[in-house]
Design a protein around this nucleic acid. Structure first.
Lengths: 132, 132
DNA sequence: TTCCTTGCAAATCGTTTGCATAATG
DNA sequence: CATTATGCAAACGATTTGCAAGGAA
């Protein structure tokens, strides 16, 4: 299976790289549609899956039942705000979770996924203000 | 909304407590059906959701697209075998992930979900044996 | 009797897929 | 030209929901 170039795929990847949050397929669809009004949701899904498979983006399971996608494939952690639902990156350099987990475990630990939950900076500040 | 007793709900919870793995709704359904042949999948889902909401069980998102349920609500971590798909518990006593994450983060971190991936003890041992 | 819970079936929602056509190399 | 990618719509699988009937307080 030789990969062929496609303007739609470029557009999807470019959109994803321009975002610091972690959009869902339908958010990608809504945005890419501005450049490709006829693009279909199916194409968006197909390309997101393809890009994730070849490692150019990563698919993240936030726990809200919808898949999110992240153009930043470097190892980092995610924070999910329980109030606004936003997904933010989190730096925990120098911490080797796999090693910590291996201490009391009999199998072979290869990697992990972590999600932190709480309230993001913005939602903390808006605590006493009127909701939009 | 006052909770009323139901034999189906008891059975669901009892089944879950007797398992060390983390069954999906349909596994629960298949098993509880032995005692309640007419129970419907809807009832199973309704009760699992209810039990999770009141904190008697917890819903875990393993990343395989299907929700799993765990009767052990004490804080612990999960390991998912990439070979057989089993979900096992993992002990990491004495490690405060939330505190570690808070060091470089501006919001308020309240909790986290972690999944470790790799190969479980059994799959490691079966490496060179013939697959069933 | 009140109102929560059930079983059933239909509805939802996110995602995948089959197919004929268009675009790429 | 050979093949991959697209748009569309239909198919899917997991979960939820509306409703009339059954069961608990």
């Amino acid at each position: 299976m030789v990969l062929k170039h496609s303007r739609q795929r470029d557009s999807i990847k470019e959109f994803l790289m321009g975002r610091k949050d972690h959009p869902t397929a339908s958010v990608v669809y809504d945005n890419v549609r501005r450049s490709f009004p006829n693009i279909s949701l199916g194409t968006v899904y197909r390309n997101l899956t393809l890009l994730a498979d070849i490692g150019e983006i990563s698919r993240i399971h936030v726990g809200d039942g919808v898949d999110h996608f992240d153009a930043d494939t470097s190892p980092h952690y995610h924070f999910i705000c329980r109030e606004c639902g936003c997904v933010r990156d989190l730096d925990m350099a120098g911490i080797d979770l796999d090693e910590m987990a291996s201490r009391n475990f009999d199998g072979q630990i290869e990697c992990h996924t972590v999600y932190f939950h709480g309230r993001c900076k913005d939602c903390c500040q808006n605590l006493h203000s009127i909701k939009a």
